[in-house]
Amino acid sequence: MSRYRHLLKKIGWSAFTILFVLILNFFLFRVLPGDPVKSGTHDPRLKKETQEALRVRFGLDKQVINCFETLNPIKLGKCDLNPFDTQFFIYLRNLTRGELGFSFHTNRPVADILVERLWNTILLIGAGQVLAIIAGMVLGIFAAWKTRTSVDYGALITGLVAWSLPTFWLGILLLFWGSNNGFPIGGRVTPGTSSYPFSYQVGDIAKHMILPTLTYTIVYMGEYLLIMRSSLMDVLSEDYILTAKAKGLSAFQILKDHALKNAMLPIVTIVAINLGFTVAGAIQIETVFSWPGLGGAVFEAINRRDYPVLQGVFLLIAVSVVIANLIADLTYAYLDPRVQTE
């Protein structure tokens, strides 16, 4: 019974968080100074009448919410309006219908942009994450097991250095190295090859992924390595490990059956949080390698005050972070039964 209550409570909190983000998202971007109609178009060809027409098309001719005409600068407006004649309630109504609207900048449906960019991001950052987790955990386990040996110190230094490398700097270094060794240095595919055989295209994407994935792996591997190492060292100093050793178990059995499961908790947290943020992309890596992911979409949308895209991306990020955390919570309960009884 308590297990279901625990689950329901967690899901309830997650739903509440997402609702809060939904509302915050709307106001967050409207508090920024700037006018989406004029952003990025410093050009006298944009007539006053056209600006008005655009404002109507974007729905910006309506009040932000009852009593407030605009939020930056704060301008008071009418209070006795039909709420569904204000931007805020139209936004909420459209969301309940599953409509994210059209981008101000590209005039494409936001949902299309999100799906396109999301796949690219998941492909790149997902691959980088998986590699980083595997490499970091394996190295961390080695370091903890061979504690205070040259293996340990080597791994520790590698981890610290990798973790503190500026991402864009490492990216540029790898890019210059890669460009002289025949690796493609920009984009997701070789343009103009979409009619080539499927096998070619898979290979082409893989080739384009090598440098950015490597960058991502190196930087994030350090984090996993350090946490795995310290967490496992803690566990290995426990008495029951000594008992296990005394029983004559092999190193592999001790790690597998006694140490690792208990050392996993902090790693699960980090993995879950990072997986949630995977969706946010890695703006720096995406920019260095011209990878068309979500990070770049956010950057562009902020510059253009593209409210619909910003709202869509932030909603997506919030949902994925909340879900990742929910999964972490549930995994916790599985790994450590004490969690749910508390």
Partner: peptide, 22 residues
Amino acid sequence: DEVVFQTFESNDVLVQSLKTGQ
């Protein structure tokens, strides 16, 4: 026969892509 315009998000990478013949 064909023209391809490829986007590079950074100017330095753009220059490098010309240097290496991409």
